[in-house]
Design a binder for these strands. Sequence first.
DNA 1: CGCGGAGTTGAGAATAGTCAAAGTCGGTGG
DNA 2: CCACCGACTTTGACTATTCTCAACTCCGCG
Lengths: 205, 205
Amino acid sequence: MLYVVHCGTFKSFVMSLNGLIQVTGFQIAGDIVGLDGISTGLHQTDVVALEDTEVFVLPFLQCQQWSRESAYGQRHLMRTLAHEITRNRRHMLALGTTRAEQRMAIFLLDLSQRHERLGHSRFQLVLQMTRKDLGSYLGLTLETVSRQLSRLQRECIIQVQGKSLALLDFAALRRLAGVSSDCSSMTVDSIVDQKGNFLVAKRPT
Amino acid sequence: MLYVVHCGTFKSFVMSLNGLIQVTGFQIAGDIVGLDGISTGLHQTDVVALEDTEVFVLPFLQCQQWSRESAYGQRHLMRTLAHEITRNRRHMLALGTTRAEQRMAIFLLDLSQRHERLGHSRFQLVLQMTRKDLGSYLGLTLETVSRQLSRLQRECIIQVQGKSLALLDFAALRRLAGVSSDCSSMTVDSIVDQKGNFLVAKRPT
DNA sequence: CGCGGAGTTGAGAATAGTCAAAGTCGGTGG
DNA sequence: CCACCGACTTTGACTATTCTCAACTCCGCG
């Protein structure tokens, strides 16, 4: 099953056998839940609603049929999957190369942008997730999350009041995030070498 | 274009506008390169060969056609995409929840396992990537990578000699990795709550 | 009013990063 | 064939960031 979020917020997370949990994303209206199980029927990701929610249910079978019958449907499905992959890549980049403050800034900008795309304010939003969930998503402890938020508030970049949040200084946030927050505009193409060395050594004829 | 690796090793990485680079994976024989551009035709990931390599080229169009014409082809394509997603999720879990030592152990076990699946030794392998690439992949600096390898060697768990590597003590490696290395065996299904709260609040009729 | 979960804050510890120096390896050209 | 060069690696000392543990506060709810 796929689930298309109609309203509300979800968190999705993976769990390892030894009980470790990593939140892999937060889904709001328009997002799709359950992509990872699309072929096997088995989900490796769990999902929990963070507030009252509504979803549309989309059975895999129907999805596959749609994809087979219409070029548009196929294209759309693959685009969605590919988008999920690049989204995850960007998050990995954040987890692997940035510090707590920068990660937080990237997250806030991303959330704001998604809110805006839904027709809501980009300044005023609600953090439905707990600090712990947010920490897990960002690869930080809940204390570090709390401290970062406090710090951003002290510097008058945001204003936090429990779960409600106001973004006061986008310029500062973007500066902290590095330009990297909008790397979605990247269109680097295909198999290219950094230094002009060999790329694809040979192609079998 | 999709590229199926026939022999050799690739690294794939994403680059943010400000020049930060994160290696997102290493591909060996049997792996597929270029999935992220499958629908848009634009790749957000670059790929570089780490040694002499051969690849099979698979145009998107052909791929889509195959998928449309055969249920098996479609299933296979989606399975591949979904697998890529879960693989990335697992890596995110590692990046977000583990320490350097544990990450290194997980990586070594994973590499060994993939080698074995190709019919090679699971004890003896070659790290084609530089320490810097490996560090980038693991979200660590190259110095930390080097130190971790040295430490594992000092404890007689592995033996390193430049790029060639021998795994001496799998039990110890698995212990360090936590059981999490084989979370591929997880079959948790679908939308489930942690505490038995609501899951999907409502389903539109 | 008191309880409990969530959040904040502080102090000290641990982990990983930074900077710097020295060592290794492989390849190139004299 | 050997010396040298550059890229890669190792190691050490020091620093910065983040984690851990713990106390305390805030808020919603019975």
